[in-house]
Amino acid sequence: MVMSRLQKIPVVEEKKGNPLARVFDDLVRFCRSRSLFILHYCTGCGAIELPPAMTSRFDMERLGIQPMVSPRQADILLITGYVSIKTLKRVILTYEQMGSPKYVVGICSCTVNGGMYWQSYATAKKLDEYMPVDLYIAGCMPRPEAVISGLQKLMDRIKNGEADSWQDYYRNYDYYLGNQQKLFGEDWQTPTDIITEAKHYELMGEGTLGQHTRLLEQHQQPLEALEMRLGHKLKEPVE
């Protein structure tokens, strides 16, 4: 009895090396949780609760959360409601372009399982099949208070080092890619090379490569840089 209870006590393995490294990690995580930028990308009707959450009424900035317009400079991808299959493609492209660490928050019941669009041919049902989701804020739609309390929870999770689902995208890329291929067709390809990134971050896991990534390799076309042109000319008016 006592033994079994004793076994449940978690054993924390001490890291060897510099004892201060841990302190430093904690500090970094604390700072990270205090400076979050939300990507301004609204998918569904739940987005309407964000303006009051961001602006003077509820003022998210007092928590250190601000909107940001470009994915490269944002930490949080808020999915504010249903994602149609067309939108989902764009959401995935956006997600992959964000720099790590990045966090996905699914607002609204629609991101959980389709919500009131459960029967629609046009919307994806479970967001966490296509990208790892850190936190769901359920409700149709959740009020700004709920959004803020959800984001506070995310901050706590970041501070405690629990919000690391972005690593999951690299470690289980094959699973996510498989679901994406199922929906978008076999020749689905994004401009971001996740496998190379996974190697770079040393986040190759057992699920990084698999049958779906092999399929991707068969179809993959090398990306070409966009042509740069200066002095773009407008079309000559037709006489």
């Binding site: 459960w118 479970k126 409700g139 709920a146």
Partner: peptide, 23 residues
Amino acid sequence: EHLSWQEYNPEWLQELVAEGGGV
């Protein structure tokens, strides 16, 4: 056929409901 489905009331959602969120 094309999309998968999950229970409307998974356990982790019940946690949220207990806190006053969720439908």
